[in-house]
Design a protein around this nucleic acid. Structure first.
Lengths: 313, 313
DNA sequence: TAAAACATGACAAGTAATGGCATGATTAAA
DNA sequence: TTTAATCATGCCATTACTTGTCATGTTTTA
């Protein structure tokens, strides 16, 4: 086996093991101790952060986390990674912030100037408009890791009614419109609620959870309708256009030959309050046929506005 | 110089040059032709897609695009790349689709099983809620590349009033809420308009543009207010909460000691129609003090809704 | 038909890697 | 205090690999 290959094997081995003696490597790879010492010198020259402790019970220790074997990327592939990073640029808080910076740095520095220009242009010509948030979510990474590791959390949370302590079982985190959300099972209220990660004031304590629980993907899938109710809407041509631009409705809209359309589907009653605000906007382009509750809600909201500004012209 | 180093130099050289003869390499690196042939065998073994044409005018040809020198990533860094890719998962159309797939594949295959589990978990525990679109934007990559390369476009576009031909100078593309937008200078209407990339039906022809034009970043920055108008709103405590959840208002809201707040800023008159729909939702939690136009708009919309459902209870 | 290219083999000369041994330094346990 | 385990380094003969030269083919095109 060539020296380069063997060096890489040892590099993988030691970054995984972290602490080892020369003798161990010699046994593992069937080479002499003298050669091991020489190899370790080579690895140091290659920049691996490694240090030796002298004496009995001594040995080598590697400081980096586990390394992947060297990967050859094409220029286009490198550019695509920068493209993906660009999509994260509009979040204030991110897990893996440090790693993303270091990957970007490693890649950029090994690009040739021509490709560097292309990457710079990506930053200038493409954007992902998640409005840049002033709201920080300092516990994002913690919360994500506790979700992954099946741990329960005691947190201080700033809710509508003030600061509260919560005992929750996190399901996962997701980003929507620049904010991070945490669906979690609330042990006190005995149901799944939605928390905003930026409103978590502190993590008080954590505990390993015994039982298996659903993850985010499963939750999205199982997110079934609890109080089914029929939503039936008639849309003008313009109403069809507008509805298709609303994520919630897109896919539900049925367009007819003359350009008008309708929505006829089953939704959960709990979603009504959210939907109400959408129909306020559509005005006469969307006529609600069902449910009654939605019409009542719309009228109430409209009356509230008229009352508020009745004495103004 | 060691063999490994020289092989890498040659690898870089040939992937950049694409077509070459053994003699050229021998001259470039001051080695014998015999050695060059041996080296090329080695590169083939390493998986470089290279083929030889026999005979006079023959030579070697490399099929890959330019390669970066090998890069060593830590496991955490690899995970961060998958995290970034996850954020792109909710877009139907993406430029660099193929490259992203191949990067993911290269990385995933060189991860150890422990790290593979971590990556799988990221897919299960984190999501970026850009609602998955049914709308495809087949010309996204084309449009992006023409923006970068300073080219004008003749396109067929599906606008409000039917199918139209447009002659435009693209500025860049950006994603918002799962859709791709293209701000561009319209040569016919002589101003910058916003197009939706999914509504581009075809690209008819392109032409190199002579003059320099702004890029997306510059456009965002220069996007100044054309018809300034004062927006002055008084908010209840609940109004403050709700406003902070709306990207547009976040950052403009001033919170007072008692929890209530206000917005007092200058906006463009053109933004009013968009803002109207927001205030319909807030109801009495947000009281508009200025401008009058906004109040009038609100009332009109509210009356329209009441009229529509007047005969229903 | 000759020239320019790849393909491959053999061999000697040169270069690099390896293992063994020796020596020394440092540290912890016996 | 001694001993064993560990890193650190130097020297040298041996082994393994790399290189250049020469030779011989093949394929293609001017």
């Amino acid at each position: 086996m060539s020296k380069a290959k063997r060096l890489l094997d040892i590099l993988m081995f030691v970054t995984a093991k972290k602490k080892f003696t020369a003798q161990e490597i010699a046994d593992e790879f069937h080479i002499s101790i003298r050669t091991v010492h020489r190899y370790i010198l080579d690895l140091c020259d290659m920049g691996l952060p490694i240090y030796a402790e002298q004496g009995r019970n001594g040995g080598y220790t590697v400081l980096t986390s586990r390394l992947l074997p060297p990967i050859l990327f094409t220029e286009e592939e490198a550019v695509s990674i920068f493209f993906a990073f660009q999509s994260l640029n509009y979040y204030r808080s991110l897990p893996f912030d440090a790693e993303i910076t270091s990957v970007a740095h490693k890649l950029y520095s090994s690009l040739q100037s021509e490709a560097k220009i292309k990457v710079d242009k990506i930053h200038s010509y493409i954007a992902f408009w998640n409005p840049k948030r002033t709201i920080d979510a300092p516990f994002l990474k913690d919360v994500l890791e506790h979700s992954i590791e099946n741990r329960n959390l005691h947190i201080q949370y700033e809710s509508k009614s003030g600061m509260r302590k919560k005992h929750i079982r996190p399901i996962g985190v997701y980003a929507h419109d620049g904010l991070w959300y945490l669906p979690a099972y609330d042990y006190h209220k005995k149901k799944i609620l939605m928390y905003r990660v930026d409103r978590i004031l502190s993590i008080l304590s954590t505990e390993k959870s015994e039982d298996e629980f659903m993850n985010l993907k499963e939750w999205f899938n199982s997110h079934e309708v609890k109080n089914p109710i029929r939503l039936h809407i008639r849309l003008t041509t313009e109403g069809v256009r507008q509805c298709k631009s609303v994520p919630y409705f897109d896919g539900l809209v049925v367009t007819q030959e003359d350009g008008t359309g309708y929505i006829d589907t089953i939704i959960d009653k709990g979603e009504l309050s959210f939907i109400t605000s959408l129909f306020l906007r559509f005005g006469s382009h969307a006529r609600i046929l069902e449910p009654k509750e939605l019409i009542v809600g719309l009228r109430k909201q409209a009356e509230e506005i008229l009352t508020m500004y009745q004495d103004e012209n």
